[in-house]
């Protein structure tokens, strides 16, 4: 007996062709790397009539390095992101985060676009991309837009119907760090994670972005923590003070003690790292 029920598979070679298929199909489903989608199809009752594979759209593949930004095509695999010299040079925290997602064969298949577009709470990259100020180029039914990752993640319903075409990363000279705590499972998924990025300046930092992936909700921006780090010199940073601010930032999230403990430990490591640098 076949593992998947049948559907019509389409392999468009252009984004507009894919959008037209998305528009005219009764119950369409976009297929990127397949690691989420095909697994879901093995378990779902809401079956698609049409699966639109994005693999043959050449413009969605590859990493392009320009003067002010790096553009990553949405079908670029996580392994390609992790091993890219350009990403490693300008966005080391993103390369590091991509390298620790799931497992090696899954990284050879899963794509950066799928990681963002899935909107699953537990995926790694959205929080890192938010910290780095990345934008998502998105082609919808009616318009093509470039959105912040936060705005993209908040799209819902018919408004969210479209194709992520690129992830755009500004070369803003930020120092990024990614901390990740996992559960012991066959495939390591984050239990809680923190992405941090800031620009170093004499004695301190500015443009601080501290994003927590609670894995229970969309990534949460810690504005209090960012402000704490921005308003003090690095030598004045104290782990217990920063932890108090973090708890206040996350009061609404009702995080359990273990996740909070992990995040406080991350802040301590972060402070150590900046003080030693």
């Amino acid at each position: 007996m076949p593992i998947l029920k049948d559907f019509r598979y389409h392999a468009p070679v252009g984004v507009d062709e894919a959008l037209a298929l998305l528009h005219k199909s009764k119950k369409p489903l976009l297929l990127g790397g397949g690691t989420f989608v095909l697994n879901t199809l093995k378990k779902t009752a809401a079956y698609p009539t049409d699966v639109i594979g994005l693999r043959k759209i050449a413009s969605l593949h590859g990493i392009r390095d320009a003067a002010k930004e790096v553009t990553i095509g949405s079908m670029t695999t996580l392994a390609e992101v992790a091993s890219s010299p350009v990403v490693g040079e300008h966005f080391a925290s993103l390369a590091g985060a991509a390298a620790c997602v799931a497992t090696t064969p899954l990284r050879h298949m899963a794509t950066i676009g799928g990681n963002v577009a899935s909107r699953f709470f537990w995926v790694d990259l959205p929080s890192v991309l938010m910290a780095l100020g990345a934008k998502v180029a998105w082609a919808g039914d009616k318009a093509k837009k470039t959105l912040s990752v936060e705005d993209f993640l908040s799209l819902t319903g018919p408004e969210a119907r479209g194709i992520v075409t690129e992830v755009l990363l500004p070369k803003s000279g930020l120092t990024g760090v990614y901390f990740r705590h996992t559960q012991t499972m066959e495939v390591d998924l984050p239990l809680v994670a923190m992405a941090f990025a800031a620009r170093r300046q004499a004695g301190g930092v500015k443009d601080v972005r501290c994003i927590v992936n609670t894995t229970l909700s969309r990534p949460v921006r810690l504005t209090g923590v960012a402000s704490y780090f921005e308003t003090k010199k690095v030598t004045e940073w104290k782990a217990d003070e920063a932890a108090d601010v973090l708890r206040r930032d996350l009061e609404q999230g009702k995080l359990d003690d273990y996740r909070l403990h992990c995040l406080c430990a991350d802040l301590e490591s972060l402070i150590d790292k900046f003080k030693k640098a």
């Binding site: 593992i3 297929l31 690691t35 095909l38 594979g53 090696t104 064969p105 899954l106 050879h108 298949m109």
Partner: peptide
């Protein structure tokens, strides 16, 4: 190396 159970 990829997984043939996750590839059409």
């Amino acid at each position: 190396n990829v997984l043939s159970c996750l590839m059409l």
